[in-house]
Amino acid sequence: MLKIEGLRVKYGADEVVRGVDLAVKKGECVGLVGESGCGKTTVGLSAARLIDARKGKIVSGKILFEGRDILEFDAEGLRKLRGRRISYVFQEPFSSLNPVFTVHEQLKEALREKGKAQEAISEILKSVGLEKISGKKNIYPHELSGGMQQRVMIAMAIASRPDLVILDEPTTALDVSVQNQILELIAELKEKMNLSILFISHDLRIVFSMADRINVMYAGRIVESGPKKDIVSQPRHPYTKGLIGSIPSLKNRKKRFEAIEGKTPLFSDLPKGCKFYPRCKFRIEKCEDEEPAIENISGDHFARCVRAKELV
């Protein structure tokens, strides 16, 4: 469905996506996980050609949607693509919805066919669990809770019956119990509509529960990728291990977390060799000089670490 090859994106002088390869198959949910500022949102925005041209630029690479490179699309081609074949759900529902239009008006805009809009809107609202407001035409976004607003965003995303939905931290602004409801809704819609999903989050717990495949991103590059079960049970990159160690666990109650020390490097000041080297517990001398290539571990499992094969 979606295949990103060698994507490089620059914001001014900083290269924030430094050669990313990623693929989402039909009906598959692929997770993209990493800390704030690792470039994951930029990858998501690029996949829908939503990078603000005043700020950033796709320098090189291909973004193949059903085999065609959307980087070569003109404005008309993109218009037919975005909001129809590819939808985007952002982190903060309230700032993504227009406060001066009703939910109905905004949903109507997202529909592909405008005939029988009323019925279609009711139907969509029901499918995202908003039966309560499906009959009411004059509801404004501010009258809804955060969870309901995010349901509206999802309704708008699926209204055009897209093939690919990019979800960028769709539950981060929500309480855990509401988070769960939204994630269940996404999983249910994915099955029902056979959606392909690119799921972006900093929280491995959520990505683990949603994705079939997981890509871990650090400082603008994928450092580990593989099927969920491999990443959960046999993470090979020290960064992935650190992210997993940061998850609250009852087994290690009242014990210190195996956290990652330090903070993410600035793109203007990246280390020379492996970008994770300064924070890595397993670093050796050669990590300082050369950024390792991504290597196959087994089957479909890849990691960008010189010690990946010994770190079991």
């Binding site: 704030s36 900093h202 650190g242 160690g245 940061s246 210190r256 195996e258 956290a259 990652i260």
Partner: peptide, 14 residues
């Protein structure tokens, strides 16, 4: 972020 969360929780426990 969950990675920073772990650092802060460690600090609070220490």
């Amino acid at each position: 972020d969950i990675s920073v969360q772990a650092q802060i929780l460690n600090l609070l426990m220490d």
